[in-house]
């Protein structure tokens, strides 16, 4: 029942860890998020040191997102062109974000800013998605006349396209059926990259709303493309964490990925059976639940007032 982890220097019940992998992998396949914002705190709860939890999590996301990307690829849900633009922006943003954190640490108060960024971003994204999806679901129930509703939705998109159309380097993204300036995904990728680096997460939960609401991509392509982008980001993170910090626990990652690769496949299948608005509202609830948890952690006194230095 127990397995010793050579880098984390602790022993864990492997069934619990596989179960965690399965649950988070399912969310990954379902929503196109890496699940880092959920997995890292869960691992810390079972006694894994924070630095090991964050780094190893990136390693298991490589497996889960590879599995999820593969599954979505077969379903034709990956917009590689858009993914590459976002990825380039993400790498740039990640590098900028790391420097921002260094600067903040030097001036003090970085932890406070990180937590507040987390709460504000998660809260905003979660609330917006929740309200928007609820609105869309109600509309569909009330007005069975689909063309009228579609016309209303299409109107703001035209305006948006008008604004974006004025930018140079216009590119047509066949898979998503949208035209944007190459600068738009590059900029948005950089923006998410900066926030992801500051918050210490992969950025999937930020990237998904960006693709849905700002790039106006169809939800099924969003999930596949997000996983594609997360896959490459986490490959980079895993290697750097193993090479620079020696914080990747291979056995822990193996246990997690054993659960998560299956979870991702189940999530993908389940995702096909759910409506886009249902998917969005579920993700919104998840994001809001995490926000509430972080707020409670901030406001309530911790049971232990000390932690090992080196965590985040």
């Amino acid at each position: 029942m127990y397995m010793y982890l050579p880098i984390a220097l602790t022993s864990v019940n492997y069934l619990v860890v596989i179960g965690l992998g399965l649950a988070v992998g399912l969310l990954s396949g379902l929503f196109g998020v890496g699940g880092g914002f959920l997995m890292t705190p869960l691992l810390m709860m079972i006694g894994i040191p924070p630095t090991i939890a964050a780094a190893t999590d990136a390693n298991q996301i490589v497996a889960a997102s590879a599995s999820g990307t593969f599954a979505h690829w077969r379903l034709g849900n990956v917009d590689v062109k858009m993914g590459v633009y976002l990825l380039v922006g993400g790498f740039l943003g990640g590098a900028v974000g790391v420097q921002v954190i260094k600067l903040l640490r030097a001036t003090g108060g970085a932890d406070f800013l990180i937590k507040m960024t987390y709460v504000v971003m998660l809260g905003l994204v979660g609330s917006f998605m929740f309200v928007e999806s609820l609105h869309a679901m109600r509309k569909k129930k009330v007005a069975s006349a689909a063309p009228a509703a579609q016309a209303k939705v299409a109107a703001p998109e035209k305006k948006r396209n008008g604004f974006f159309a004025s930018l140079p380097l216009q590119v047509y993204f066949e898979k998503s059926g949208v035209t944007h300036s190459a600068l738009v995904p590059l900029f948005l990728g950089t923006f998410v990259g900066v926030l992801a680096a500051i918050m210490g997460v992969g950025g999937g939960f930020l990237m998904v709303p960006v693709m849905v609401y700002m790039l106006r991509m169809p939800m099924h392509v969003v999930v596949g493309t997000s996983l594609f982008q997360i896959l490459f980001t986490c490959i980079e993170v895993t290697f750097l964490q193993a090479y620079s910090n020696r914080t990747v626990d291979f056995f822990l990652a193996l246990l997690l990925l054993f659960g998560s690769v299956f979870g991702a496949q189940i999530g993908t299948v389940l995702g096909k059976k759910l409506h886009a608005d249902q998917l969005k509202i579920l993700l919104a609830i998840l994001v809001l639940a995490v926000t509430v948890k972080i707020v409670l952690e901030l406001v309530l006194q911790p049971s232990l007032l000390l932690a090992y230095a080196g965590g985040h």
Partner: peptide
């Protein structure tokens, strides 16, 4: 690091 990435990719 490379081994960790490759095994994760292969498993996925």
């Amino acid at each position: 690091g490379i081994m960790s990435v490759l095994i994760a990719l292969a498993a996925g």
